[in-house]
Structures are given as structure tokens and as C-alpha cells.
């Protein structure tokens, strides 16, 4: 019998994300690479009355950036600014990140576990910027949307957090779980003209 106490993670894109090559077949390979990252531990922390930067820095080993839209860390964990005094922390699942933060941050801080509430899509490839431009209004020129910065914006009409991991470009897109299918289908549809490899 299945262990009811620790349910298996089930991807929100199960049956929708089908690995393979879709759309055009350019001579130099698919222009878009699309995959789902996970499982991830995703936790939001929000400062109450006290500044969280130092305490979070001690708990995580990397201090969150006080600058708007600036990311910290290389992925274990990755800390993204999502508002004044609010950060989203994500790392590959391994420990109980929410409990760890709750224990190490001051009482006034709000710690919210979002691991099961967010889906993280990884978008890369030479046409990734053009694809993003189809669905959002922010400036995605490499000089404007630089690596290690993130943007909270609307992507194909749903709220998304776009994290620019590198200038190649590689983007991590965090989206609410219930919008994941919509966003994935829109991204895949938009990517067909460039050729899309789903992994």
C-alpha cells in the first residue's frame, strides 16, 4: 500500500510536457529548449518589523540582495527579490527548507512554503528572448534584463517570476501551479516557428 504520510510529488505538467522535438526543424538545431525543473523547495520569506537580510544570510549562507529585482546565489539556494522586504528562495529539494527558515528567522518574519504551489520552467536557446517578447511587455534586451536579475511580470497573461540565470540566455520561469499548463502550452505554441526541444 502506498505510504500516505509522504505523498509522491506529481508534476502539474504530467501528460502535457511530452519530451521530443516540435515545430520547425532549423538546420542549426531547435531554437528553443524547454523543460521543467524540479522537484524544488520554494519558500517565500517576508520581513515584518525587522530587516531579514542578515538573518536570512546566516540561515542560507548567502544574503538576499536588498536591491530590487536582483538575485543572489547560484541555485543552492537561489534567492530572488519579489517585493520590498520579500524574497523567494528556491533550491533542489533535499531538506525541509521552510522549517529551517522558520527556525532561524526572527518571529516577525513570515515564512511560506510554496514548493507544491509553484512550477519552474527552464527556457533557453537562441530564440528564447524572442519567445518571451511574444508574451510579456518588459524590456528583455540583454543590456536591460541582465543575468542574475529577475522580474515579476505577466507572461502570456499570467503572473510569472522570470529569473535570468545566464546571458546565453537561460531563464527560469516560476509560475503558479494551476497556470503551469496554460503557460507551457503558450510557450510551446510560440516556440514552434523556431523549433522547440522539450525535455
Amino acid at each position: 500500500m502506498a505510504d500516505l504520510a509522504s505523498p509522491q510529488r506529481r508534476s502539474a505538467l504530467e501528460g502535457v510536457l511530452v519530451p521530443g522535438d516540435f515545430g520547425a526543424t532549423p538546420f542549426n538545431g531547435p531554437g528553443i529548449l524547454l523543460s521543467e525543473r524540479g522537484p524544488l523547495s520554494v519558500v517565500q520569506i517576508e520581513a515584518g518589523t525587522e530587516d531579514l537580510t542578515a538573518a536570512a544570510g546566516n540561515a542560507l549562507g548567502i544574503a538576499p540582495s536588498g536591491m530590487p529585482n536582483e538575485a543572489a546565489g547560484t541555485g543552492r539556494p537561489r534567492i530572488l527579490g519579489t517585493g520590498t522586504g520579500r524574497w523567494l528562495i528556491s533550491e533542489p529539494e533535499g531538506r525541509d527548507l521552510a522549517a529551517h527558515l522558520r527556525a532561524s528567522l526572527p518571529e516577525s518574519a513570515a515564512v511560506t512554503g510554496l514548493s507544491h504551489a509553484r512550477v519552474c520552467l527552464r527556457l533557453s536557446g537562441r530564440d528564447a528572448r524572442t519567445l518571451l517578447a511574444k508574451g510579456c511587455g518588459i524590456d528583455i534586451h540583454p543590456d536591460a534584463f541582465r543575468p542574475d536579475t529577475s522580474r515579476m511580470t505577466s507572461l502570456f497573461h499570467c503572473a510569472a517570476l522570470i529569473d535570468c540565470r545566464s546571458a546565453e540566455p537561460v531563464y527560469d520561469i516560476y509560475v503558479h501551479r494551476s497556470y503551469a499548463v496554460h503557460l507551457f502550452e503558450m510557450l510551446l505554441d510560440g516556440a514552434l516557428e523556431f523549433g522547440c526541444r522539450v525535455a
Binding site: 530590487p68 529585482n69 517585493g83 511587455g137 522580474r151 511580470t153 505577466s154
Partner: peptide
């Protein structure tokens, strides 16, 4: 489009608001 200078995010289009 109207561009609103959000104190946190910077200049963004009004359809985000």
C-alpha cells in the same frame, strides 16, 4: 500604453497594474 514607474520594479506597462 502608459508606463508607470513602480518604486520596486521600475518602469512597467499599465496592463500589469
Amino acid at each position: 500604453m502608459l508606463y508607470i514607474d513602480c518604486p520596486y520594479c521600475g518602469s512597467r506597462g499599465h496592463e500589469e497594474f
